[in-house]
Design a protein around this nucleic acid. Structure first.
Lengths: 201, 201
DNA sequence: TGAGAAAACTGCGGGTCACGCATCTTTGCG
DNA sequence: CGCAAAGATGCGTGACCCGCAGTTTTCTCA
């Protein structure tokens, strides 16, 4: 499909971005659905055609990223070791895309503070976790295809997917807290994982 | 404290149980907060003194279980290998407590069906994941104490906690879907984890 | 290119929810 | 026994989510 789907995706991301920006600036409960809709240039009713809640709108970008990660995994060379592919894909997917770097944000300090506040809201936390969980099935399917296992029957692909998600969650949490280097966090985490998480000597 | 805290906990679990029972029987959106409060014998307003939403009430039992798991980990012998302790604690914590076995449920078939339907509701999914994530910090702290690491600074304990949570999520999902043996699922999963999740030959 | 069909957007309305506030009741303690 | 603290309740409000019906936009096909 063409123009139709394109526009739909456009307003979808517009709504999500608007929600994030407003909430980071003003705080979660000082932003109304009405405000988000206005910011995105659509009717308030339309907002709920795209998202079931404010939190879902905020998390939708996270969901997209996670889904893209699963897709990217399918495009890695088949002979590459699985966990090398996973590391590559994670490192690749997390780097901010052009839509982020384009948006020049004047006050990085304030933005970071607002971000942290946003992740304190229970509804946001829950919705982010759910987004990751939703993408997990796609990830499991990709892992299953790659390893010759069954995404539904076998536990292995689901475990790998869940572990990747868990790693992403932990590193993300540390990232928004300390603003530490994401790449280092990921590589170190994956090393722990592939070694079987033995207690440190 | 004594009678005060006791009563509070009582109404809390009463509300949670009431929510679960009603929702499993009738479906999520055919149950009003008012109904849950009536079932538990308190005012509708009181419900929101305990829980911020219907979903949170439902997930609260799950949260309690996860927290108990972290506490139980602290009581394992210090010289036991970490992952043996984890396996033991997971197996121990998941078995239904006396409050479940006491409540004689007449129609197991219908109950299982209702349960599956309940976990389809997005708000429920999200809140369950959040409950697990909340308990994760307690779990990480326990792991940190045990391994001589720092629960905030070091990645290791957080990774272990997140992985345990992920395993619990996966096995729970498979359990409600197939009603398969939970114990077997857990032991197999932990074997994969401690081996570093290598792809099957 | 021009209808007709399909799909999205919009306004309206209702049912529910979450919570602040004030009040009343219960609990704990001196 | 009586007072202070904390919980429970009732009321009221603002916001949310969604069903429904009408309008506008987009797609398709002749």
């Amino acid at each position: 499909m063409g123009l139709r789907e394109e526009k739909k995706q456009a307003t979808r991301t517009a709504l999500s971005w608007a929600a994030i920006r407003l909430i980071v600036n003003r705080g979660y409960d000082r932003v109304l659905v009405e405000d988000i809709a206005a910011e995105a240039g659509v009717s308030p009713r339309t907002f709920n055609n795209y998202f079931g809640s404010k939190a879902e709108a905020v998390a939708s970008r996270h969901l997209d990223r996670c889904v893209r990660m699963a897709e990217a995994l399918r495009e890695r060379p088949a002979d590459e070791p699985l966990w090398d592919s996973i590391e590559h894909v994670m490192l690749e997917t997390l780097k901010p895309g052009p839509e982020v770097t384009a948006h020049a944000r004047p006050d990085k300090k304030e933005w970071a503070a607002g971000l942290q506040l946003m992740f304190v809201v229970p509804a946001i936390q829950a919705e982010f976790l759910r987004a990751a969980a939703l993408a997990e099935s796609a990830l499991a399917a990709a892992v299953a295809d790659r390893t010759g296992t069954d995404a539904v029957t076998d536990i292995y692909p689901q475990l790998v997917a869940a572990t990747v998600t868990a790693t992403l969650n932990v590193t993300s949490r540390l990232f928004v807290a300390d603003n530490a280097g994401m790449r280092a966090l990921i590589t170190e985490s994956l090393q722990h994982i592939t070694k079987g998480l033995p207690p440190p000597a």
